[in-house]
Write a protein that binds this DNA or RNA. Structure first.
Lengths: 337, 337
DNA sequence: GTGAAAGCGCTAACAT
DNA sequence: ATGTTAGCGCTTTCAC
């Protein structure tokens, strides 16, 4: 078994307090004593027991990031931002996924690891009752990411979906003078999709056009689904001033693929925009015009908020709203005539 | 602060031992007593202190998965497999990234969270001295993923890179009768790249051809780099029976993009294969022939190995070798003539 | 079926 | 500058 503080103390012929002091640099120890202790530590390969430490200190300086699932670049960017911020603030970051294969989201308060953390950044796939319920049982400080949960006071970092979608739609109106917008969303229950849709509606309306209900389609954010859907529907879309607004880049890629295979040129015959600015957007041809969601920043700001709360538990709840930026590439350039 | 076992005991008018027994279901308690305790627990919202528990039990039933970085589908698939297996075996899985922005790999034994885990699955970007050094200081059971580390006894799960590359190269020889193979690898220091290269060499040699040194190129696994490189070099490649072997799918995508832009048809003028079978392989056009690395299985087998070791600490070190499978799509179909 | 008490390894207040 | 000791919350013998 591993060596404890008392063995180090015995070997260095000091008391355990002195060892503790050396380990934590908490108060000044005689340099010679200190050297003796350090040598003993090295010789024994002593490592403090984290459980005992946590029990006494009532904190671990470890925080968690719990995501709905860890698939896709979106999440890895969040993680990158969170990780780096956590280290800067002297915390370690541990990541966990709620999703368990097909068994659906799992997060109950009995989750053992939560009790080892000082706090946690949480992101739910959907802000439903289930989520709210889970939340009420989380017994430690938390920050919500990309989700609003009215009624529960909390810190949060959210994306201004409407602003992002508005920028794209306005770009379409301004540069291509879109007459008809085809909106291809994720699930109808998905809040992001609904917000983006609302922004499209509004921009169209304000510019004297309208977004026809028949041109709103709810898919599932996946390439294959969008590809199959576009194969069937594409022929009805092509026409003067038609553009597709896909609610994420993957679906945009699927639609572009179907279009090119059907001989529909892009951006010539049809303009298209995506959302998120994931890797595929730059890799596909034509490269995709899209809205860049500041993913890494979401992670870092959330961690920042959490750590601030740990330091000052009684500060008022804060909400940070981040705006996507427009990334103009080739998929909806004005066709030369 | 949070409620402790003794408050529950007081409220239920039993001793703390009884509360403990109820919480852990360890031994039989009188149903009436049990009910009383359970009610007290509910009323107080009691949650056992994980540090105290860990201190006493000397285990947390939590394991870790430490990856070089969390970018890309490769890792998320590993995570998915590991997660699901961990839950099946009664463990919780926590994930951590070694990479800290541009600050390079970080993993020192002082990493606080390691001390809270029962064991850890580790994957290094490169099996260098640094890695070996870190490893020697990890004071808990571990399993190595996709890395060999001779000299240190350990369990591991590795990919049979050679077998995968061989399947691809043989496919190229058999169906297209390749005369010239252009190998586009990751960094020259990357072990996977070297193994895949060796397999290509061998297959070419065995079939009476050779892999010219001038046709070996070391890049960095990235789309943009491969794209830029292909733009420059492409013209020298096209010719009867030439094929490109890209060491991952992203680079293959970059090369394909450059080729199509230059008017080189694929698979007509040039055949190409990738490696890994990440999402992009199915999404690009032509869809990419590649070798599917069983990523999720890597994760699940590693966790399985780790948990087995936790149960039987003295079993001999085990190595599991997983073989990639050939996924035939369109990027190197025989051109009709 | 239940309780008393030792002990896990550590920190911090207090004493010297 | 260093040692002594209480106590953190829990599990687990050992009595009864």
């Amino acid at each position: 078994m591993s060596v404890s503080i008392s063995e180090v103390a015995r070997r260095a012929r000091v008391s355990i307090s002195t060892v503790s002091r050396v380990v934590n640099g908490s108060s000044v120890v005689n340099p010679l004593t200190k050297a003796r202790v350090e040598q003993a530590i090295a010789e024994l390969g002593y490592q403090p027991n984290a459980f005992a430490r946590g029990l006494t200190l009532r904190r671990s300086e470890i925080i968690g990031l719990v995501l709905p699932d860890l698939h896709g670049e979106f999440y890895s960017e969040i993680i990158r931002g969170a990780n780096s911020q956590a280290r800067d603030l002297g915390y370690e970051l541990l990541i966990s996924s709620m999703r368990d294969g097909d068994r659906g989201p799992v997060l109950d308060s009995s989750q053992r690891y939560l009790a080892l953390l000082d706090g946690v950044v949480l992101m739910f796939a959907e802000a439903d009752d289930n989520a709210r319920d889970l939340l009420s049982r989380v017994a430690l400080p938390f920050v919500l990411l990309d989700d609003d949960m009215p009624g529960v006071p909390h810190d949060s970092v959210i994306i201004d979906q409407q602003a992002g979608a508005r920028k794209l739609a306005e770009h379409l109106v301004d540069t291509r003078g879109v007459q008809r917008l085809i909106f291809v969303g994720g699930p109808a229950t998905n809040l992001d999709t609904r917000e983006r849709e609302a922004a499209c509606r509004e921009v169209m309306r304000r510019s004297g056009r309208r977004l026809d209900d028949g041109d709103i389609h709810y898919l599932n954010y996946e390439f294959e689904t969008a590809y199959a859907f576009a194969r069937r529907s594409l022929s009805g879309w092509v026409g003067p001033g038609a553009c597709v607004f896909a609610a994420n880049d993957e679906m945009a890629a699927g639609i572009v693929t179907a279009a090119l295979e059907a001989g529909v040129t892009i951006p010539g015959d049809l303009g298209i925009v995506g959302f998120d600015d994931t890797r595929i957007a730059a890799m596909m041809r034509p490269a995709l015009t899209t809205a860049r969601v500041p993913m890494a920043e979401m992670g870092s700001r959330a961690v920042e908020l959490l750590c601030r709360r740990l330091a000052k538990p009684d500060s008022p709840p804060t909400q940070i709203k981040l705006e996507p930026t427009l990334v103009i590439r080739d998929s909806c350039r004005v066709p030369r005539r």
